[in-house]
């Protein structure tokens, strides 16, 4: 492996830490988006149900 990426033998430790950090950040972004869209959908569904009732 290229010396720059081998990290003096600590490559597996260093890269896994940066990898998991990226994964957690992506989860945070996606989870936030999903919840926001779900909330919007729930509200609009409730409003529509109310409209058809009245």
């Amino acid at each position: 492996m290229n010396g720059m990426f081998a990290m003096g033998g600590y490559g597996a430790y260093v890269w896994s830490c940066f990898g998991i950090t990226l994964i957690v950040l992506v989860i945070c972004v996606v989870q936030g988006r999903v919840r926001h869209n779900r909330t919007l959908k729930d509200i609009s569904a409730r409003l529509r149900a109310m409209e058809t009732k009245s």
């Binding site: 990290m7 003096g8 033998g9 600590y10 490559g11 430790y13 260093v14 830490c17 940066f18 950090t21």
Partner: peptide, 15 residues
């Protein structure tokens, strides 16, 4: 790289 920890110290940048 760190004189004690070598390249393992780079974990500090996310930790």
């Amino acid at each position: 790289s760190d004189y004690q920890q070598g390249d393992a110290f780079r974990i500090i940048y996310v930790h």
